[in-house]
Design a protein around this nucleic acid. Structure first.
Lengths: 349, 349
DNA sequence: TCGGAAATGAGGTGCGTACCTCAAAAATAC
DNA sequence: GTATTTTTGAGGTACGCACCTCATTTCCGA
C-alpha cells in the first residue's frame, strides 16, 4: 500500500525502467502501444511522480524573477519585503528568486529589460507594470522563449500571460463605494475621489466599479471627477483645502491609489473633519496609522505575502506543468477596519 | 558558487561526513569543540540542508490528524472539503492526513479518541473541540507522547497546545458590532443577538467583543440577551417571530454561531424586513445566498482553506522543528459583502 | 527472407542526505 | 604508562528519480 515508484510501474506495465523513464519524460523512441501500457499502469497504480526526488535527480533550480516598479512607496516596499521573506524560505526548495526594479513609466525601458531575460536567467517572471503595447509585446516574446509569465497586481489582459495574480479592481472599487454608501445612509452630498494617476488600468477599474455602485445603489451621493495628486505635496494640499472648504461639503473621500502620502499629509494639515468617511487602499503602516487615529474608516487591501507566494506557486506549477489548488490562488479583496486589523505580534496559543 | 552540500561542510570543518551527519542530526558522541567547528562551517558556507533530499533519504512520512466535530453543518463540511483537497495535493509531499469525527459534546468520548492515538498513528494533531477539562488533559497526554497538537478554530488556552490556528473571536465580535454600528449611524434601537449555544468559548468571546464595542462606541444601540436556537427550527421560528413583531422593532441581528440554518429559515418565513441589518459568521453557501438576496449585509469569516493549510504547515514545522513564515500563519478576520464576495469560477488572466 | 531501422532492456551513475557498521584514533581515567 | 572509554573516520547502502550507453530484440518494408 506504499506509494508506487517507477519500479512498480515498470513491473505493472511489463516493461523496463528505461522505458518507463522514456514515457514519463516524454522522450521518443517508444511505440504508441507501449506508451499506452505505461500510462495505464500509471492510472492503475495511482502513480504520482515524486517531484522532490525528480528535482534532486535533475539538479533543477527554479529561477523566478519579479519585475517591480522602482518606486519607493510603502506598498512596493511591502512587496519587496514579502519577496525577500519568501525567497529566504525557498532557498531550501531549489528556488532562486530575484527582483528587478524597472522604471514602469518608461514602457520601452521595461520592454528592454524583459527582452534581456533569457531562459538561462529565468524559468518564470512575475511582472507588475502598467499595460502598454511595448510591455505587452515584450511579454509575448518572453513566452516565445518558453518563459512563464504572470501579471502581478496589475493585470495585462492582452499580453497572453499565463495568469493574473491580483484582485479584481472593479470589484474593489465596488466594495469601496458600498462601504461609503452604507456608512452614510440616507445622506445627500459629495464624495471626493483622489488618485495618484488616472493613467493606470488599476485606477480606472477601481473608479469604474466605484461609479457603478454609487450611481445605482446610492444616487444621493455624487462622486467628483478624480483629483490627481501627481505625487506633488503642495499641489495636493492646495487642491484638497479648496475642495474641503467649499459648501455643502464633502461627506466621504475615496483614495484610489496605493501611494497617497501627500493626501494624508494634506488632510492632516487642512484639519479635515473626522466626520468625513475615508476609504483607502492597501494596508501599509500609513493606512494602519490612519485606522488607529480615526482618519481612515476602512482599508481595502490584498494580502501582500499571499500575493507573492501565490505568484511563486503559480510560476513553479507552470514550470512543472503541475496543477494548483484553485482556491489557494484566489487573492481576496479584504476589508480592514480598526477592529479586524491584523496585529503585528505573533499568534499566541 | 553552488549550494554547499554536506561534503563541502565536512571539508570546510576538517571532519568526516559521518561527523557532519552526527552534528546536523544532533546525534551524540561528538565533542563540543567539534560540534562548534561544524556549526561554524555551516555559518561560513551558508549551508542549508536540502529538505527534499533529506526527506527522500529519511523515508519519512508525516502523519497528521484532524479531529473534527461529527456535526454536519456547512462550516464543518467546508472544513472537511478543504482537508480533503489539501491532503490530495500533499500526497507528493510524503504527508498523510486523516480526519477523525468526534462527538464534541461528549468530552469523555473526545478524550478517549485522543488517548487512543499513538505516535504510530500521528506525528501531529489539529483538534477542533470545545475546551473542557477532559479534552485539556487528553491533549496534555498527547503532548507527553511527543505528538504535536494545535488548537483548530476553537482555542484551547490551557491545554498547552503548540499553537492556535484560528481567529481572535473577541476581535471578530468587535468587528461585527462595528459594522452594525456604522451601518446604523445615529439610530436608537435594539440589536438581536442569536447563537446556537452560549456554551462554547467561541460564542462567548464573540459576544464579549460585540458588547465591548456596542457599549462604548454605539450606546444608542442596545443588544439583547443571546437568543439560543438549540438547533430547533420550531422553537427558533416562534422566538424570532415574537421578537420581531414587538415594538419598536429590531434594527439589526447578529448571528454569532456558524450553523444558523434555522434562523435563516425562520427569518424568511416570518418575512423580516430587509431594512434590518444582518451580520453572520462564516462564508458558506447559505450565507452567500443571504448576501446575494440581500438578507445578509455582511459576513465575517475566516478562510477555510487557509485554516487547514496553516494547521498542516504548523504541525509539519513542529515535527521538523523548523520555523515558519509568521505572516503566512496569521488567520485573517475577513469581512465579506456582496461586492467582494469571492467568485466560484477560477481566476482568468 | 533478410536488412535496416526502430523499440526495448539491462545496467550504470549521480543528485544530497540519512543511517549504519566497524575499525582506528584520540582523549580520559587509573 | 596502560587500560578504558569516547570520538572520529572510512565506507557502504538506500531513497526515487533522471539520464546515459550499449547491447539486444522486435518490427517493418522491400
Amino acid at each position: 500500500m506504499n506509494k508506487p515508484t517507477t519500479r512498480d510501474l515498470a513491473q505493472a506495465a511489463g516493461v523496463s525502467l528505461a522505458t518507463v523513464d522514456r514515457v514519463l519524460n516524454a522522450r521518443d523512441g517508444v511505440r504508441l502501444k507501449t506508451i499506452e501500457r505505461v500510462n495505464q499502469a500509471v492510472r492503475d497504480l495511482g502513480f504520482v511522480r515524486d517531484i522532490s526526488a525528480a528535482n534532486l535527480a535533475r539538479q533543477k533550480e527554479y529561477k523566478l524573477v519579479f519585475i517591480l516598479p522602482d518606486r519607493k512607496d510603502q506598498f512596493i516596499r511591502l512587496i519587496r519585503a514579502a519577496v525577500e521573506e519568501a525567497s529566504h524560505t525557498l532557498v531550501q526548495a531549489r528556488t532562486r528568486v530575484t527582483v528587478l526594479s524597472v522604471p514602469v513609466n518608461d514602457p520601452h525601458a521595461v520592454a528592454h529589460i524583459l527582452d534581456d531575460l533569457s531562459v538561462n536567467d529565468a524559468d518564470g517572471v512575475a511582472i507588475m507594470a502598467p499595460e502598454t503595447p511595448q510591455v505587452r509585446d515584450a511579454i509575448l516574446r518572453l513566452k516565445n522563449k518558453n518563459i512563464s509569465v504572470v501579471a502581478f497586481v496589475s493585470n495585462q489582459p492582452n499580453a497572453g500571460c499565463d495568469r493574473f495574480v491580483g484582485i479584481n479592481n472593479v470589484a474593489a472599487g465596488r466594495t469601496a463605494a458600498t462601504l461609503i454608501g452604507r456608512f452614510l445612509p440616507a445622506q445627500t452630498g459629495d464624495v471626493l475621489v483622489v488618485t495618484d494617476t488616472t493613467q493606470s488600468r488599476d485606477s480606472l477599474e477601481r473608479r469604474l466599479g466605484f461609479d457603478q455602485v454609487l450611481l445605482t445603489s446610492f444616487p444621493a451621493l455624487r462622486a467628483s471627477p478624480s483629483l490627481e495628486t501627481y505625487n506633488d505635496p503642495v499641489r495636493t494640499k492646495n487642491a484638497l483645502t479648496s475642495i474641503l472648504n467649499r459648501a455643502p461639503g464633502v461627506l466621504a473621500i475615496y483614495l484610489v491609489g496605493s501611494d497617497m502620502r501627500e493626501v494624508f499629509a494634506a488632510l492632516e494639515n487642512c484639519g479635515a473633519s473626522k466626520d468625513i468617511i475615508v476609504i483607502a487602499h492597501e494596508l501599509t503602516s500609513r493606512t494602519k496609522q490612519g485606522l488607529r487615529d480615526g482618519a481612515v474608516d476602512a482599508v481595502i487591501t490584498q494580502d501582500v505575502g499571499h500575493l507573492v507566494r501565490s505568484a511563486l506557486r503559480v510560476l513553479k506549477a507552470q514550470v512543472d506543468r503541475a496543477s494548483l489548488v484553485a482556491s489557494q490562488e484566489r487573492i481576496r479583496i479584504e476589508i480592514i477596519m480598526l477592529e479586524n486589523m491584523p496585529e503585528d505580534d505573533p499568534v499566541p496559543c
